[in-house]
Every structure is written in C-alpha cells, then in structure tokens.
Write a protein that binds this DNA or RNA. Sequence first.
DNA 1: AAGCCTTTGTGCGAAAGCGTCCATTGACAA
DNA 2: TTGTCAATGGACGCTTTCGCACAAAGGCTT
Lengths: 265, 265
Amino acid sequence: MLSRSHEAVASSSNLLLSKLTPLDYQRLLPHLRAVSLPAGHTLYEAGASIQNVYFPAQCVVSLRLTASAGTDVEVAAIGREGLVGIDACFGGMPPTHRAEVIIGGKAWQAPASLVREDFSRGGALGKLLLRFNQSLHTQTCQAALCCRLHSVEQRLSNLLLSLRNRVGTDEVSLTQEEVAHMLGVRRSGVTVAAGILRAEGLIEYRRGSMTVVDAARLGSRACECYHVVGKPIGTAVKDLTVIPSPHYGRASRPRYARLPIALSG
Amino acid sequence: MLSRSHEAVASSSNLLLSKLTPLDYQRLLPHLRAVSLPAGHTLYEAGASIQNVYFPAQCVVSLRLTASAGTDVEVAAIGREGLVGIDACFGGMPPTHRAEVIIGGKAWQAPASLVREDFSRGGALGKLLLRFNQSLHTQTCQAALCCRLHSVEQRLSNLLLSLRNRVGTDEVSLTQEEVAHMLGVRRSGVTVAAGILRAEGLIEYRRGSMTVVDAARLGSRACECYHVVGKPIGTAVKDLTVIPSPHYGRASRPRYARLPIALSG
DNA sequence: AAGCCTTTGTGCGAAAGCGTCCATTGACAA
DNA sequence: TTGTCAATGGACGCTTTCGCACAAAGGCTT
C-alpha cells in the first residue's frame, strides 16, 4: 500500500517528476522505489546496459569517462533537476560513460524498461525527457570547453557552487581526492586551489567536507561555465519543496561496501 | 521534376538518408535541396533557432562553443554519417553551440520543421535520429576527455584521421590556423605538432591543405579518442557509394563571402 | 590512551602550452 | 615579373599543471 504521502514526496523531491502530467505520474508512481544511494556507488558502468533509472532527490550523480591512462573526467552531473540513465529511454547502444554517486542521498528508482515504454508512447513525458536530454548535452559541451580553457581554481569554484545548488545545502561531503577525480586533475592541485579560496574566505573545509561560505563572491571566481549551466539548474530547482531531514550526511561516509538501501516498496 | 538520379544520389551520399525506410525516404525526398556549402559558412548560430537541417554528402561540419575569452572549442564534428541540426528535431531550446562548415562540399538541405514533424510521428526515423543523437553525445563526452588529457600532437592526429574518414580523401583543405581553432590551441602549437608528424613521414602538408600519408602509423600516434569515435565512423561510412567528382576542393578556398549555392530544386 | 590509516599540506624539477613577436615563404593578382 | 598578403616557421620568457615524494595532521578503532 503506497500512501498518499509517498506520492507527495516523490513528485516534490525531483524536478522531472514534479513536471509530469498527472496521468504520466500516476502511471509511473506504483513502480517508483525509494532508495538511499551511498556516495561512491556506481549506478551503471560504461558499456553496460542500463537496468534501472534514478530520479535523484537529494543525491548528486556524476557521469564520467575514464581515459586509458586511468584518469577520470566528469562530463556531466545530475541532481534533483534530472534523471540518471536517460540513454536507456531512447533505446540505442549502452552509454560510453559511467554513472557514479558523488553525494549520497535518496532517489527514486524505476525500471528502465518502463520509462522506455513510456517514452515511446510519445506525449508530454517524451518531450520532457528530450528536453532534459538536451540540457545534459549542453552540460557536456560546456564541460569540454571548461576542461580545455579554465584553471583548476575556476573549475573548483564552479563545481562547489553547482553541487551546492543541487543538494540545497552549503556543505558537501567530498574529499579533495574525489574532487580531483571529478575535475581530472591532481589531488594536490585541488589542495592548492582550495587553500587560496579558503584564505579569501570564500569557502571553508575540513576532512571529507567542503562548505561554500560566500556564494556570490565564489560565483565571480567561477568560470562562465557555471553561469551557463550550474546556476540555471540552481534556480530551476528552487521551487521544489524541500524535504525535511534527508539521509544526507550520514550516507556519505563509509563509501566502500554500501549498496542502495530500499526505504519502501 | 526530381529525377531518379537525384534520388539515388541523395540516399547513397549520406549514411542517415541511406538508412531510412523507403516510406520515410519518399516523404523526405521532395523537400531535399542539394546545396554546396563553402568552408567557413555558419549553418546556425549559438542561441538561434534552427531553420534548416543538413545531411552532409562530402562536407564536414564542426559544432563549436566559443568561450568568453574568444577561444573556440570543437565539441563534435559531423560528416556523411549524420545530420546537422538534430536539436531542432526534438523541439526544446536552441542549442548553445554553433555549426560551422570546415570542409566545404555538397549537402542535402531540408526544412527543420519537416524533420521535426517526421520525428514526432515516431517510428523508424525517430529511432534513427535518437541513435545518431546518442553518437553525437558520445563524441562530445570524448571531446571533453580529450581536451583535458591529450597532447596537441595526439589531438591533431585524431583530427586529421577523423576528417579523412569522413570526406573519404587523404587530403583535407585546412590551414593550420583553422586547425588551431578546432583544437582550441595556438596556431604555432599546431605548426610544431604538424612539423613533427611530417618529419616522421606520417603526414604531408602545404599551404591550406594537409594530407594523411600513413594512416596506420598516424593512428598509433592519435589518442584513444580516435579509436572510440573517429574510426567507427570511418568504417560505418565505408559502405556508402562514393559519389564521383564532388564540388570538393573548389568550394573550399575563398571562405568569406560565399553563401550556400543551390544545385537543384 | 595509543595506534593506524586516511586526508591534507608542501616542495621540488619537468613538461606542455601560452602570448607575443618577427622572419620566411608560397600563391595569387596586378 | 613583381608586389602583396596570407600562411607557415621559429624564438623568447612565462604560467599552469604534472608527477612524484614526503611530512603533518585529523579522526576512527582498539
């Protein structure tokens, strides 16, 4: 028995879900499963077919490519504004990227096959997915430019602000090592850049966590890429009802052996 | 009166067109217009709505972002294997990138509205477009990684081979300056890299043109990105009937005031 | 309280690429 | 033929980042 509160929470915690027509939403709802995604968990591997899609509630998922040398580069990130695994909705080949949870938290899981069928039906849901797909592509384009032209410091500012906008809190649970993986730079490069930003009072940090202190000034240190993709996402997400006391913060620490935990269904 | 030869040429000069079902193809054919696209011509601007889409026959089109500092970065390239302006088919916002012809040549032009309608009808054409869209996204992902991690020399090798595969000739009409724009690096950086590759007998070049001499060895100098996206495209395109004596080579020189020239219709 | 392991701080030299400048050289046009 | 201009060849010091190595904490476990 899925209660009405379940329903209310699902649609108000993810922007895509909240934008569905009542009909589409009702069709999807019985198949949504509340899960808690631990940081570090891989939702799908590069080259593997996608079994489940995820509508993040408070978590953030990073789409990454791994170079043959082993270095990672983030090509996009998805939070409350989107859907992880959209490639599965369109059929086609498995994606070449990997989806990894970077900020742990709740999400709504649905079978990929279901969303694929809903998409092929066309209509409002299809339009919504295509629209999100385009915004994802825009992110990736900007990532290419950003990787090529902008400094570690700019990109770090960008990253922190974007994460903040997506999770809705000033503090994010990340080590400098993880940040380095996202940016595709050395860990010590992050240490230096973060040190500068801290010295100027723009951010604060301790082991395994970084906090945005002065978002406005940090925004002026970020590259244009933030203003093109990160900020719009932040404003889009603002009108979402905030879910009180998520699992956030607790789920992020021991990132090795934790698997997604079903909260209902 | 559109002759049968017109029909044969269209479907055999572009991979997407050749993959259409007879029905879809017949519906599209009366609206296809043969145009000659001069190098340097912009097919659509960033932020502008797309009026026409293009099925390249012998030309190659570069999708680019311009940073606020003025530097360009290529996020994808499209040749005979694809369609320029696919964003228009899905509705949504105008793209944030620009589409610019880098290798002049023939293409088939169609009204964006028409292809959009055909897409929303669903069916085989829709699947085809979604599939190509995904391959475009794969390219962009790889571009992000490539920009971040690989050397000018590797990326130059990659670029030359990819272009060669798309146009079907070993020689491509490009100045080092134009190559530099594509890679997002200095012009003199290209000079140095090209000099090394020439010294080793992998490529040859003169003013305004570069030639692949030893594709196999050049491939081993290119980064993995070539093998992930450029080479597959090359093999996919191979089964296309080669069109004899295209406008290629002539259309590439005076790249300022030339507008697309209708060859029929 | 002690020990341990992860995370952060820091300091090298090396390498790649940048920005800028100017010399040389093709190729086209007058 | 000659003039002109775009395209290529190189050089300079400078900045950013890399790759590596090691020291100094912070925080959890026992």
